[in-house]
Write a protein that binds this DNA or RNA. Sequence first.
DNA 1: CTCCAGGGCAAAT
DNA 2: ATTTGCCATGGA
Length: 301
Amino acid sequence: MPTSNDLFIPMPSLFSFDECIWFLNRNYDDCLHRVSDGCIVKTVAPGGELMLVRLTQEGAKIRAEILHGKNNASQKKLLEAYIRQWFDMSQDLAPFYALLKKDKTLAYMVKEFNGLRLVAIADLFEALCWSIIGQQINLTFAYKLKRRLVEAYGQHVEFEGERHYAFPSCEVLAEAQIDHLRSMQFSHRKAEYVIGVAKAFAAGEMSIDLLRSLPDMESRQKALTAMKGIGIWTANYVLMKTLKDGNSIPYGDVGLLNALSKHGIISERSDTEKIDAFFKKYKGWESYVVFYLWRSLAAKV
DNA sequence: CTCCAGGGCAAAT
DNA sequence: ATTTGCCATGGA
């Protein structure tokens, strides 16, 4: 009997595949996945094995087709775990929605963004590089920089005449030259930071397991910010996007402040008291409120 | 032309 | 301890 290339993952309650797709699509040109009517194609590397998968929704399940790569049972198991983490499928959103409903200003989000999950960047190294690239520049330009980096250093899978890229490994980027990144319009600093972080990963000085082994959020933040180019914003961003720490807040984030002021929660960007008071209402769900606030900044397509 | 983008660092107060 | 100048570029 031939092995099937399909994997079906049942969707949890309060889950919307369309909302997750919407987030991945937004208005930006992301080189690490393609979205076209209800379908996502992306390279992934669960367990270090490069694959190309296509995700669609079929009834109450997500169908993952393996377009390239191993399709044996153990690899499928890794792929399923990857997808469940990617879309935060193991989380029960009911408690979060209960908190939102108590908040007059944000209660509309339960209906408006129903089933939106905190979409992850599964790989810590990629998440760190991406946040360094995105620091202080507009996202359109940030995605351009990422594309140049990925197409220069990343592996790709060819499928139906198109190249699907994976984010470069730390070993490859550790050998990259600053001048080369400069020619891609990275600033000198950003080039240094990305290569420096790559070297730390390649040398085994930083890894997701290392972070997970640390007892609390503070020590994780400390370990991350010890690297050049990683400040508190970036540390919190990756703790939220990769480690799925429920209570990490990217303080000072421009988008967050804009969303808070747009909802009339703060009037001054420096009003830390009001910000603290706001997040107090969302203990344990701080990351999710931030994610939903970011979501609220973009018009629904 | 000016200002600001999903900040962080190092030098100067 | 807190503030300031700088980075690189594109879009509003």
